[in-house]
Structure formats: structure tokens, C-alpha cells
Design a binder for these strands. Structure first.
Length: 907
RNA sequence: GCGCGAUUAGCUCAGUUGGUUAGAGCAUCUCGUUUACACCGAGAGGGUCGUAGGUUCGAGUCCUACAUCGCGCACCA
């Protein structure tokens, strides 16, 4: 058999291993059933991959997503479930168009209008194709066991059918409507943007007070004031009590005298400014609402490019917002209407999170989803908001961590109608047609005059046969993303895929897109399918740099997975993202951390290397255990399997990983592997090594698939004719361990005592600086009542002698007599270890050490005695806790006696 | 303004129904090359769990207030 290299080199194995997995077809649950890996009636487990934006490449944030989801998928696949992980990409309409437009401008100094809609979209498609290829490669590099045969794209033909079907149903039920409402307009990208896509940026600007008839009004935006003819005050404001609602008055204003009207509305904050404000309903959502309530006129002041309209008068029209602001203030100052200016007014400016354009609210005719409209569902009235609330409150969608439920409900409470139409070119075109025979595209009386919504593309008017035009707008990218869990499974067709895998099991994504996406999937799925899109929402945190800063291109602290994989291997990156982080909390990631997990993969490699070197010819699945150490490691392993399984079921990946690492490195490598070197029954220990290692590889596989599969291949290649794949092995079963362990009747308490004795000896040597070369004899004493230990100690004497204790001999005594002239340590209440002290030993130091120990134990005895003599404790604490404490106290007392005896003996 | 989170060893973080002496990794100190691994091994040091109250026999854990930092939402004339 060839020997493994000393160091594991990920780059030599990872691509080959992935290729082997992919070629096997087992990423596809259907193949697993066909080939008998999964039972046909096995419980399904499904995750739809949150589709990354088709704007370029994956970053380390995507790596968290892939690591967590692949862990879940591999775990459930090994549990024998019918497991599907469905990949895809999001066309990310606005973000992608913006990116391609920028590239177009940078390389050719052309705008999309220079190219025209058709050839611009062709450019976008080319760009997207390339991005998707890059991302597919990256996902494979991360080891993702995605079913590539089902790959989807939010803008392909199947998803377009789903989008049109959804749109039509919502339109027919009156949930989608077209209306002239105030929207967020981005003059830079020439499109509307939804509320959630806005970022608020703090800005310090001057705040002006102007005389407006008898009122003083405050504003930071004088340039919108041309059309203002309403002053609004609070109905309870005593300063304005003498005016009545609807009262007209004259005011000298920018371009002469105007007639204005007073309005009273409780929305006004009396303590802000002068308590009086003028309103601009066309360019402010709050003002729009006031105007709607009081049926006031609305006038457009600013055009869609951000310039003033004719209403501003000849001196101002055509100016940009900032130019106009300065000039208007100047003019009002000249007219003596500027009362005062506050210079350090802080307010928030709305920015489009894609592209950075400053949002100008505008009234526009757009398509909306009405989230409050009541409709009939199985005989009861409901609304989208209600459906979204019920999905979590009653239908049991579970959030991990739970606190995000509150955030979710809070968001729904504040939710307004969702504007779904965009004026960009890239995306699903709105499936609405207008007959050219009707002069205006408005709602009229004849069928031709109404918008026609059609699932199929239309070429002529179905009513009059006239020419037809499609709505030029496209849909908000989150509309199609909202359908993702079921559009990917074949909806609107009632496919077997849909029936089998929907609702999906888990939605795993970053908490930052809870509103954008998670909430909208719940909306769409509950409305269109009458079922939840997923049973559990697992939200991971954001990846930050070592200093806790958000990773960003401008800071230059972005970690690209493709840069670090060659250096440390994919497994190390996955581990550093999975261990030490908890759901919903951000992770700090630095190279140091990744390096430490790289070391761990190498450790596992070397454990396997050792086990393979010692591998006996035959490994039986059942074997007799005769050694105490064997019973011990198997029972430890059984415990580990139980706990890790439990942790994974509860989404406690970090805890599971830590337990695995602790077992692998400390229990298995540092203890059992060393023990195995000295156990006499080589065949038995080698069998146990392999037995534990194989199951350990299975437990680790979901965390670090590459190194575990690589080792697995080495193992199976060396023994079996048809190599198996770890990826489709069954998760370790506890029963195997119980069977082996119950074949022998001993418990394993004795063996952990052996380990404690070894540690005590090492500790004694180290504390007294006894040279390692200096071989010494030692004496163990056991109190009379623990004679039962004697056999076990005798049996494992050879281990105590050899496990880095460097003893020449070991004498075991049952007497209570303390050996003279020795260094000593109490191991347990009943066992002490003694080493003859040579001339070089510092007695004072040893005395000090024992006194310190004595004080510690005394303190413990004191607190335990106090606790036990407290009647409240005895009456209230559960019996088993009290019993435990009592046992503890007895142990402490015995240990104290031991330590005191030792103290006397060295005087 | 409302809400959420964080505050535990030098650093990064675990600590899930309240119950021994609060854990890990990294870093630090001492020692070490033996059937895998120096990307290693042995041993050690290091914390009044942000502050102040409260509930309880018992609080890192539950409650209240406060402080500092971070995030979300709303308002923003």
C-alpha cells in the first residue's frame, strides 16, 4: 500500500473529488432513488439556493451561505432523506443594468439609448452569461453539492411563465392595480425604486424660515415651494386658533402675490419649527397623503430629469434643484421674506441603493400590489398583510434565531403598497397590453380601452383585432424572486417536483434581505399556492474583517474565496465560517483563523495516515472489545454521535463543530491514538481506530467534505473492490456502538481514572522541573474502599508507564501508609501518586504548591457545606442535584485528607 | 422617537429550559523531536461574565434601570 504524504494538499484533491461527486449524479435526488441510495418513500428535504446576483462574482458572504446550506444538505442526504438543493441565479434587474451601463460608458462612452433596447439587452445577456459561468465555477470550488440538472434563472422562459401567471391572478383579483401615486423616482437611472431599495444618508443643510402671508414656514427645500398654496397647522395649535380650516388668505411669494388656503391636520408636529408648513403634494409622500385626505390640488414642480418646470416662472424654469435653491433664497431675501436661516440642520436624504442617485418623490402612473386589499380566501376575508402574518403566527414558519420574527412583524405593520413597475429595460416586461384603437391608455368603458393582461404574448387586440402595444415597463426584480421557491419546481404546472419538494425545508440567507426577499416569498407563496414557501428561515450574519468592518471594495478589505482557497483549501474556509459563529450574528474573519483550521484539516489527515499505516488486513463491523481503553473511546464516540446529531438538528452548527474538533484532536488523537501505540492487542486497537475514524469522517463530512472524502477514498481503495463514496454513506448509528459495548459489561469510569493518573504524573514532573530524560519510579496509593479499582489499574499499568510519563516502574499499594520523601498529588478522592524526590527538588516550592491546593479544597468544602446546610436548598433543589452535591462534598473531604497527609510527609 | 442585538481571559467568540470550581481557539510562559502530524506534543498562567438594583435556596443565564457600541424601522416641513 502506498503511504500518504505527510501534509494534506487540498489543491491536489479538491477538483478531482468534486468531479467524482458530480459525475456520480448523486447531487440529484432522483438518481439517488434510482440507484438505491435513497428509499423512494424517504422524507424529502429541500433548499432552494438564494440565487446570487448575475452582476459578477461571488464574495465571502456567499461562501457562508454555501457552507451552511451544503452542510445541511450533506447531513440530510446522509440521513437517508430525499435531498434536493436547487441552484440558480438572479437577473437582479436594476443592479445588472446599472453595471452594464457603466461598463458601456467606461469602454465605449455610449449610453443604453445609443444602442437601443434590443441591442442593449443583448449586451446584458452576454454579460450575464459570463457572470453565471464564473459563479458556477465558484460554487463548485466551494464544494456545493447542488443539483445542477435543475438549475434555474429568474429571467428564463419557465420563470417568465410563472411571473405572467402570478401577475394575471393578482390583477384579476384586484390586488395588482395601476394608479397615479407618489413613488420614489431616481432621476439618474430614470426609474422608480421601491421603499426598501432606498438608503438614507445624513446631510447637514441650511434650514430657512420664510414669511408666508401671516405665517412663518420652515423648509430645507425652497426649490419645491413654487406651487405651494396650502399652509397646514395642527388643529389644536393655539397660535393658529383664530384661523379656521379652509380659510383663504393672501401671501406675497416668489413670483408675486398668491391666494393660499389654510388646512388643519393632526399630522403636524406643533413643536417643530413654527408649527406651520406649506405642502408640496407632488414631491413629498406625507404631503401627498395630506392632499389626498383633504382633496387638494397637486402640481408637478420638478421634471423627471431633476429640472424645474414652467410653473417656476421664466427666471427659474430649467434650473437644476441645487441652482434653483440658491437663487430662490436670494430672491426671497431681496423681497424681505427670509426671516432667518439655521445653518446646521441635519436631515436625511434618500438615495437609490443601486447607482446612488438622489431620490425625488414624484407622482407617476405605476403598477402596485395592494397589501391591504381584502379578498376572499376559502370563504373568509383576508389580505396579503394578513396572509404574511398568519404564515408565521399560525402556519408555523420558524425563524432561526427567533428574534427576527419581531422584526418581520414590525416590517409588515409599516408596509405600504409595493410599487412593482420599473422604467428600466432589463427584466420581466409587464404582461399588459393596450389596444391602439383606444386613443388613451386609460380605463374606459369598452374592453379595448382597458389594459389587457395576458399570460401568452399578444399580437392583436382580442376584442377588436386592432394593433396592440405592450407596457414598456419591467417588473421589480423581487417580484420574480418572490416566486423562487416554487417557480423553480415547475409552477404553475402541478409537477411532481412541486408536490415532492414544496414547501421547501429551510430558507437559508442573510438577515439583510429579510424584507426584500424572505417576506416577499412568503407573500407570493401563501397567496398563489396557499402554502408557506419554507418551514424554517435560517438567517446567517454578515462577514466582517478582522477589525469588525464591513467588507467593501473601497476599504480594500474584501476577501475573495478564490484567492484564499488555493492557500488554505476550501475545507479550512468552510470551517472558519461555520465554527465560532452563531445564527444572526456577524462573523469576523481573518487569515489567522483560516490558517488554524487549515492546521486542523492536516491533523485529521495525519490521524488517517496513522490509522492506515496500522490497518490490519480485515476490518470487521462487529468485534469483541477486551481493553478498557477500547470501551472508553467507543463510549465517548457514541456520546459524540448523539450530541452532534442533536446539535445539527437544532441548527447549532458551531457547537457541533466544536465538539467534533475537541473529540478529534484531544480525545481521539492526543489520547486514544497514543494509547493505541502501547496496547498489546494490536488487532483490536487497529480495528477500533478504523471503526472510530470511519464514523468520525462521516460526522465531519458535512463540514469539510473534501478532506473527509479524500481520506475515505484512500481507506476504501485499500480494502474494497468497489469504492464507495462518503457523500452517500449513512450517518453513524448509535446502535452499532450500543451492541459492541453491551457485549462487555464493564463501565468506563475506570479508564478515565487512568487518564487522570497520567496527567497527575506529567503535572508533578513539570511542576518540579524533573528533566524528561530523568526516568523515575512512581507509587500509586489506593484507599481501602476502592479496592475494586485495583484490577483496572494493574491491567493498564503499562499505559501509565508509557504515556509520556517516563517512569521506570510503577508500584501500586492499597495501604494507607504515605510513602516517605516523595512528591505527591491527589488524583481523585481515593488515589494519589507519589514520586521519590531527588536532591534537586525545591521543598519550599512543593510545600507552597500543596498549601495552595489545600486552601482551594478548603474553600470548596466551605461553600459546599454552606449550600447543603441551607434548608432552602434542600427543600427546593431537585433531589438529584442535592445528591450530586453531597457526593461532591464527600469527595472534597477525602481529597483534603490526602493533601494534608502529603503535606505532613514532606516536612 | 420605537425596536433589536452586543458588552464573558490579551484578542476572537461559545455558553438553549437558572444547579459542581464559567469554556474553546488564537496569543503568552516553561519544557520537549517518542509509530501520524512542528500545519506537532506535554504542562502552566490568565476572567469579581458592562454598571446598579431586584426575583430566587441558587443568576453569566430571568426581571428593571443606566452606560457604551452596533443595527433596523419610523419621522425628517
Amino acid at each position: 500500500m502506498k503511504e500518504l504524504p505527510k501534509t494534506y494538499s487540498p489543491e491536489e484533491h479538491e477538483d478531482l473529488i468534486y468531479q467524482m461527486w458530480e459525475e456520480s449524479g448523486f447531487f440529484n435526488p432522483d438518481v439517488c432513488v434510482e440507484k438505491g441510495v435513497t428509499e423512494e418513500d424517504a422524507q424529502p428535504f429541500s433548499i432552494t439556493l438564494p440565487p446570487p446576483n448575475a452582476t459578477g462574482t461571488l464574495h465571502i458572504g456567499h461562501s457562508v451561505m454555501l457552507a451552511v446550506e451544503d452542510l445541511l444538505i450533506r447531513y440530510h442526504r446522509m440521513r437517508g432523506e430525499r435531498t434536493l438543493w436547487l441552484p440558480g441565479t438572479d437577473h437582479a434587474a436594476l443592479a445588472t443594468q446599472e453595471k452594464v451601463e457603466r461598463i458601456l460608458w467606461d469602454t465605449e462612452q455610449k449610453t443604453r439609448h445609443d444602442l437601443g433596447r434590443e441591442s442593449f439587452l443583448k449586451r446584458v445577456d452576454e454579460f450575464v452569461d459570463e457572470s453565471r459561468n464564473t459563479m458556477r465555477r465558484q460554487m463548485r470550488k466551494m464544494g456545493s453539492s447542488l443539483d445542477w440538472s435543475r438549475e434555474a434563472f429568474t429571467l428564463d422562459a419557465d420563470r417568465n411563465l410563472a411571473v405572467r401567471t402570478a401577475f394575471k391572478k393578482m390583477f384579476d383579483e384586484g390586488i395588482i392595480y395601476r394608479g397615479d401615486r407618489i413613488v420614489n423616482w431616481d432621476p439618474k437611472m430614470q426609474t422608480t425604486v421601491s421603499d426598501d431599495e432606498i438608503e438614507w444618508k445624513e446631510e447637514t443643510v441650511p434650514f430657512y424660515y420664510f414669511q408666508y402671508g401671516p405665517f412663518v414656514i420652515g423648509t430645507s427645500r425652497p426649490e419645491t415651494k413654487f406651487g405651494d398654496k396650502y399652509v397646514v397647522v395642527h388643529p389644536d395649535d393655539e397660535r393658529y386658533a383664530k384661523y379656521h380650516d379652509g380659510q383663504k388668505f393672501e401671501a406675497e411669494w416668489i413670483n408675486g402675490t398668491i391666494t393660499a388656503i389654510l388646512i388643519k391636520d393632526p399630522i403636524i408636529d406643533m413643536s417643530f419649527g413654527s408649527g406651520a408648513m406649506t405642502i408640496t403634494p407632488w414631491h413629498d409622500p406625507t404631503d401627498f397623503d395630506i392632499a389626498e385626505r383633504h382633496h387638494l390640488d397637486k402640481e408637478q414642480i420638478i421634471d423627471y430629469d431633476g429640472h424645474l418646470l414652467n410653473i417656476a416662472g421664466s427666471a427659474f424654469k430649467g434650473l437644476t434643484i441645487l441652482e434653483a435653491r440658491r437663487k430662490i433664497v436670494e430672491k426671497l431675501r431681496e423681497k424681505g421674506l427670509l426671516v432667518k436661516t439655521e445653518d446646521n440642520y441635519i436631515h436625511n436624504v434618500a438615495i437609490n441603493s443601486r447607482g446612488g442617485g438622489t431620490i425625488e418623490p414624484q407622482i407617476k402612473r405605476q403598477w402596485f400590489i395592494n397589501v391591504n386589499k381584502e379578498f376572499d380566501r376559502d370563504g373568509t376575508q383576508t389580505s396579503l398583510k394578513k396572509l404574511m402574518q398568519e404564515a408565521v403566527r399560525e402556519k408555523g414558519i420558524e425563524f432561526v434565531p427567533k428574534r427576527f420574527e419581531k422584526t418581520y412583524f414590525h416590517w409588515i405593520d409599516n408596509l405600504r403598497d409595493w410599487c412593482i413597475s420599473r422604467q428600466i429595460w432589463y427584466g420581466h416586461q409587464i404582461p399588459v397590453y393596450y389596444c391602439q384603437n383606444s386613443k388613451q391608455q386609460t380605463t374606459g368603458d369598452t374592453p379595448c380601452q382597458k389594459p389587457i393582461v395576458s399570460i401568452e404574448g399578444l399580437h392583436k387586440c382580442p376584442h377588436c383585432g386592432g394593433k396592440i402595444e405592450q407596457d414598456p415597463d419591467t417588473l421589480d426584480t423581487w417580484f420574480s424572486a418572490g416566486l423562487w421557491t416554487f417557480s423553480t419546481l415547475g409552477w404553475p404546472d402541478q409537477t411532481i417536483n412541486l408536490k415532492t419538494f414544496h414547501p421547501t425545508s429551510v430558507m437559508e440567507t442573510g438577515y439583510d434581505i429579510l424584507f426584500f426577499w424572505v417576506a416577499r416569498m412568503i407573500l407570493m407563496s401563501t397567496y398563489l399556492l396557499d402554502e408557506v414557501p419554507f418551514k424554517t428561515v435560517y438567517l446567517h450574519g454578515l462577514v466582517r474583517d478582522e477589525q469588525g468592518r464591513k467588507m467593501s471594495k473601497s476599504l480594500g478589505n474584501v476577501l475573495d474565496p478564490l484567492d484564499i482557497i488555493p492557500k488554505y483549501g476550501t475545507d479550512a474556509i468552510r470551517l472558519s465560517l461555520l465554527i465560532g459563529s452563531t445564527p444572526g450574528n456577524d462573523v469576523r474573519l481573518g487569515e489567522e483563523k483560516i490558517a488554524s483550521y487549515r492546521n486542523f484539516t492536516n491533523k485529521l489527515w495525519n490521524i488517517a495516515r496513522f490509522a492506515l499505516q496500522n490497518k490490519s488486513q480485515i476490518t470487521n463491523d462487529t468485534f469483541q472489545i477486551t481493553s478498557d481503553s477500547g470501551r472508553w473511546i467507543l463510549s465517548q464516540m457514541a456520546l459524540l454521535i448523539d450530541e452532534v446529531t442533536h446539535d445539527l438538528d437544532k441548527y447549532q452548527f458551531s457547537q457541533a463543530g466544536e465538539k467534533l474538533r475537541d473529540f478529534t484532536w484531544n480525545t481521539f488523537a492526543d489520547w486514544y491514538l497514543e494509547i493505541s501505540k502501547f496496547e498489546e492487542n494490536k488487532k483490536e486497537t487497529n480495528n477500533i481506530l478504523m471503526f472510530v475514524l470511519e464514523d468520525l469522517l462521516k460526522l465531519w463530512h458535512p463540514f469539510m467534505p473534501f478532506v473527509t472524502e479524500t481520506i475515505w477514498q484512500e481507506i476504501t481503495n485499500s480494502t474494497e473492490k468497489t469504492p464507495r463514496m462518503l457523500m452517500i454513506e449513512k450517518w453513524p448509528a448509535l446502535k452499532k456502538y450500543q451492541d459492541v459495548l453491551s457485549a462487555s459489561d464493564k463501565d468506563t469510569a475506570d479508564f478515565s481514572t487512568i487518564l487522570q493518573i497520567v496527567q497527575a504524573i506529567r503535572n508533578l514532573r513539570s511542576a518540579n522541573r524533573i528533566e524528561p530524560k530523568n526516568k523515575l519510579p512512581a507509587i500509586l496509593t489506593i484507599s481501602k474502599e476502592s479496592k475494586s479499582l485495583l484490577g483496572s489499574l494493574e491491567k493498564n499499568k503499562h499505559l501509565i508507564l508509557k504515556l509520556r510519563t517516563n517512569l521506570s516502574e510503577l508500584e501500586i499499594q492499597t495501604t494507607e501508609k504515605i510513602p516517605e520523601n516523595c512528591l505527591s498529588q491527589a488524583v481523585t478522592a481515593n488515589i494519589s501518586v507519589f514520586i521519590p524526590r531527588g536532591s534537586t527538588i525545591d521543598i519550599e516550592q512543593e510545600h507552597e504548591r500543596l498549601v495552595k491546593e489545600e486552601t482551594n479544597i478548603k474553600k470548596l468544602i466551605q461553600s459546599t457545606t454552606d449550600l447543603l446546610s441551607n434548608p432552602g436548598y434542600r427543600n427546593n433543589a431537585p433531589a438529584h442535584i442535592v445528591q450530586k452535591t453531597e457526593k461532591l462534598l464527600i469527595g472534597y473531604q477525602k481529597k483534603l485528607t490526602e493533601v494534608q497527609k502529603h503535606l505532613h510527609s514532606i516536612v
